[in-house]
Design a protein around this nucleic acid. Structure first.
Lengths: 213, 213, 213, 213
DNA sequence: TTCTAATCGAGACGGTACGTCAGGTCTTCTC
DNA sequence: GAGAAGACCTGACGTACCGTCTCGATTAGAA
């Protein structure tokens, strides 16, 4: 039995009401007003929770926003992919673009990214709990495709994943408009074909294709 | 004559000493300690300049760091590209990776990106003066290649440029290691081949490659 | 019968261990670190007792210190005085000076006096249970002496007692060194003689002594 | 010339308005509500002055109350005493009793005394600037009287001064009513006569006077 | 023995004040 | 008029205690 007894906890139990009020307040504040507005002070006031209590459970305002973010996108990576590799990748990349374009998620993530520049803990949590699983899901498909022989054995998985996942972050962070679905299809196909095309890596052919005129 | 006379302004002229001392101090502070350390207060102290003076010329600490950044990478886009399109793109992308990996530039840019999340002016300046010229240089080459017939007419330039330039920002912002030169070559070739490969978009081949089993 | 039966109360009886641990911890904390150190929080930690329990039995940290003080000097006034009035007074005044100079008592009392400035309950308890009995013991001797004819009938008992007992408090409260035994003898004799001397209040003698030139 | 030039100070000069508003607010708060009410926070609010500014000029709330106290009783010791020694002493002691009974001064001093128990700086300032000058004025008169021959050469000045000045502090600190003018006269005469009476310090006479019956 | 009423401990929570830091603004003097 | 010096206000920080409040665990007399 790996699911233990409820473990008879001592003392007054933590209030779930408080936790969710704080997460909600932080998200609301961060959505309008940006990172500057989501201070611990303001969150406490809006959530009608004592500042002390907040400091007991979270080390910073950014960590609250981050936790709220996880709440919102929970289980987002686990959806089963489509039938073939390209479709599966497309599914994941579209989901990623979708999140980052979501007006309830993108700005929050942007806040957290900003905070991560000056907060090691945030940086680490963001990498481990946000970036890694999403890269992992896509990398696994690519790696499988290489194993299958769908993609050449010398495919550079890291490079392919970078090309697939970084554009939406780039656009989010610099306040650029998101790509539409057709463009995302294009992106995935470009990278996929590019990996295939890598086979003819001999100088001769390369010269042939680039100096085509 | 659009460059006017120096315009004999009255009063004491602005001190260039002060300006460069401020820029230097800001960069030094931001490099160690991150965004949190580069406060107007600290910059004033380190540059041995009055806080009032700083407020007179810059709206925020981040704007000082940004200005210092420009100083450092001035003329960085203007270098003539190589002979052929792939080489020219590779040159630019490598230069971009190089900047962002430079320990004197990357962290500063990351600071500024963080600040841009809560500062419209910074966001705008960053986009206009940093992102746009770099995207523009690469986009021009791709667009030329399309014009030349090197790349198919239906190439999506925006998508291609995104795939080429976003990885280094992504890696900078999430604290990931930069890509090495070989990987950058790979990245450029993948995208280039991918654009080429888009031509043979007929179902037959696509089916052949993806449903290989 | 005013001392009732132990009143067979139900439930778990109060733990004497807890009480003494709290009193001891409070005294130790107050002795080093002063009033600022003897917080309910710190006392609870040091006594290894729950804060809740302390709040159940005492209204404030100062009241704990005060109770510990009583414990320490219990029965201190009841000792039988010496044979004659001056000796009896001297005994009491020396005992008082002794207490206040005692490094285990003086600082605690000083803490409690400080607390009494902002705590009516402490002020009242201090007056009723500390000041009053000690004044009373000395005042009784002086009053007896007046009754005996040892001292003139118009002796102002309050004034005499004030002159005798206030110096040690004054010195305690202002951090001045205590008086030595010889000085205490001098003090008592000065006051005693002064009371006697009040009789010959005729102008002649007064003029003689004060306008001596 | 010991009064220097105004010393051309740089920067914005300190606002006297702020200073006096703070002192007034602190006194008002301390008078009602006692030490607990005179917090830096409350003073800042009432004086409509920023807390930061207060911290710049004063280390604690008690130090503000103390400074206000000095303001109020400035030059209080310098008044010329009466013609003869007893009158001069009486003048000083009455002035002291008067201060401590003054409803605008006594409670403030009591607050400061309470604070001095946990604040070395306050303790020191209180001793140097309040206690010492007042003791000194009276001690000087007594010492002169000894020099004149008015009082015996072996008079213990410290003891005499203690007996004269400590009663009002004692009564203030323990919340007892002050002595009336007649009692103060009595006090001074008792101590003065007591000092005179010290001459007959031989055991024989002492026994004679104490076992008078 | 079992019930029952109290003590005691653990810990969450809302508060108040602390003392500090940084951001901005304003005032005054010097170059 | 630029710059330096510095006073001032605002707002948020993170911490320390306060006093109150659930809970569960313990204890011992009463039923």
């Amino acid at each position: 039995m790996d699911d233990k007894q409820p473990a008879p906890r001592r003392g007054r139990p933590r209030s779930e009401t408080v936790r969710s009020a704080v997460l909600t307040a932080a998200a609301e504040l961060a959505l309008r007003g940006g990172p500057a507005a989501a201070t611990v002070e303001a969150i406490a006031k809006r959530a009608e929770v004592s500042r002390t209590t907040i400091y007991k459970w979270w080390p910073s305002a950014a960590s609250i926003v981050l936790e709220g973010l996880y709440e919102r996108v929970r289980n987002s990576v686990t959806r089963p992919p489509g039938s073939n590799s390209v479709d599966a990748i497309t599914h994941h990349v579209k989901a990623l673009f979708g999140f980052l374009a979501d007006p309830e998620v993108g700005p929050l993530l942007r806040n957290v990214i900003a905070a991560s520049a000056s907060d090691r803990a945030i940086e680490h949590a963001l990498f481990e709990q946000w970036i890694t699983p999403r890269r992992g899901a896509i990398a696994a498909i690519v790696r499988d495709a290489v194993g299958n022989g769908e993609l050449p054995a010398d495919t550079d998985v890291e490079v392919a994943v970078d090309a697939l996942v970084s554009p939406p972050y780039y656009r989010l962070v610099f306040g650029m408009p998101t790509l539409d679905d057709a463009s995302i299809d294009r992106l995935v196909q470009t990278v996929w074909q590019g990996c295939l095309g890598q086979v003819d890596q001999e100088p001769g052919l390369s010269e042939l294709t680039t100096h085509i005129e």
